[in-house]
């Protein structure tokens, strides 16, 4: 599935340009949770291991 095709809004087209085309079965893949540090909040931990 090419997510960059035929987007009906500027915002969707803008997001689509950031995403690489996905294979047809892309939606069946296991979901990966990516947790990034927020830009400005209390959530500023880091996992550091000595």
């Amino acid at each position: 599935m090419d997510l960059t095709d035929d987007h009906g809004s500027v915002q969707e087209a803008r997001l689509a340009r950031l995403i690489e085309p996905q294979p047809e079965n892309g939606r069946d893949r296991p979901r990966i949770d990516w947790i990034n540090e927020p830009k400005a909040s209390s959530r500023q931990e880091e996992g550091r291991h000595a």
Partner: peptide
């Protein structure tokens, strides 16, 4: 689209 961003 949001799902694509998350997956990648």
């Amino acid at each position: 689209l949001v799902g694509g961003a998350l997956q990648q």
